[in-house]
Design a protein around this nucleic acid. Structure first.
Length: 352
DNA sequence: CGTTGGCCCTGATCGC
DNA sequence: TGCGATCAGGGCCAAC
């Protein structure tokens, strides 16, 4: 169950390896992992092979790797040689630190020439679903349950391999076109370009995104007529939160999972958002310390359970705050773990 | 149109 | 030892 912190660990682990890398071959072992790809697996392989990866970007739980235009479809390069980053990067350390775009003053090279229809900016979109992993390997390593394999040559000339492993096949890969963000801000963490995959455009910014608007979140939340946990899990309202961090944030804010959103005061919503950020940030800090740059180790389970969880999965044990037992309800086809004493549904304060 | 319930998917684990 | 039942839930979409 990778949520924002786990996906960010993947992104950060992939970034130095894939930035400036060229895809040399692609193998699809299970077409079901292409559910989000609009076309057959042959199309996926064809469109990905030979492309150069520009960056590793994340919004919420979605990850994408923007691709440079295919060489055959390269538009007339406007001016400076900004479209020929391939053979010039001899110093991989610099390439990793600076990224390919920093010198381009905000304009995305892949998108700038789209007027004549010569090229549409695209990205490899990855969602890990429930059980997905992207494992960075050498070319001799195979992993069980690998659904898609992407072999790359890094900007430093190293042969590497990305194994997309996914037991339950709720995750997926896809080639998707990039569209402009409505606010013109960077689409996610890892790239300055205001370009988001079309299938991610409806996903809200996450609470760690500098362009996340607290005010708009509170306003949207106040309009909802549902339980607070359902709202937290709605990626169109706020992204990156899954079942584990929802339960942990609600426990920290002492809010019952089914507290009606319309009855939640602005003050308590503020507390909740602050706790969400604390929980996500803490998990991110813990996850970030335990991964090896060589291998993007994102085994969801081991990552989570190394964190100290106060509520999730703790049914039967004592609430760390009051000592009463944590209970588990079945809710929305998932478990909700909470302290029945600390987290009670409260009536809305009567209006003056 | 906003909200909600149901479905997809399978390896690991547990109990008999 | 073997085997069947159970469990995990993110995102999407039909239905209300």
């Amino acid at each position: 169950m990778p949520e924002l912190p786990e996906v960010e660990v993947v992104r950060a682990g992939l970034e130095p390896a894939v930035t400036g890398a060229v895809v040399s071959s692609v193998t699809v072992y299970d077409e079901r992992s292409l559910r989000r790809h609009d076309g057959p697996s042959e199309d996926f392989v064809e469109r990905l092979t030979g492309r150069t990866i520009r960056a590793a970007v994340r919004r919420g739980k979605f990850l994408w790797l923007p691709l440079s235009p295919p060489r055959s479809a390269m538009p007339f390069a406007s001016g400076e040689g900004q479209l020929s980053p391939l053979k010039t990067q001899e110093n991989s350390a610099i390439a990793v630190l600076n990224g390919p775009n920093c010198s381009n003053a905000g304009e995305s090279p892949a998108f700038s020439e789209g007027v004549a229809g010569a090229s549409v900016a695209e990205a490899l979109v990855v969602h890990l679903g429930m059980s997905g992993q992207v494992l960075l390997r050498d070319r001799t390593t195979d992993d069980p349950l690998t659904r898609i394999r992407v072999d790359i040559v890094t900007s430093a000339g190293r042969d590497l391999r990305l194994n997309f492993v996914d037991q339950r096949i709720f995750g997926s890969m896809a080639i998707d076109r990039l569209v402009a963000t409505p606010d013109g801000r960077a689409a996610g963490r890892g790239d300055d370009a205001p370009l988001v995959p079309s299938q991610v455009a409806h996903i809200a910014r996450d609470p760690l995104d500098p362009a996340f608007s607290d005010a708009r979140f509170f306003a949207a939340l106040a309009k909802r007529r549902t339980g607070i946990k359902r709202a937290l899990l709605d990626q169109g309202l706020v992204s990156g939160i899954g079942n584990i961090y929802a339960d942990e944030s609600l426990w920290a804010a002492r809010i019952h999972y089914d507290q009606p959103t319309e009855s939640l005061s602005r003050a308590r919503a503020r507390v909740l958002l602050a706790e969400v950020r604390l929980v996500l940030g803490k998990a991110l800090a813990e996850g970030g310390t335990s991964f090896d740059a060589q291998y993007v180790n994102v085994n969801g389970a081991s990552g989570y359970f190394s964190h100290s969880l106060n509520a999730y999965g703790q049914q039967g044990s004592a609430c760390p705050r009051c000592g009463r037992p944590i209970v588990r309800d079945s809710f929305m086809n998932r478990g909700s773990h909470y302290c029945a004493f600390c987290q009670r549904i409260r009536a809305a304060r009567a209006p003056r």
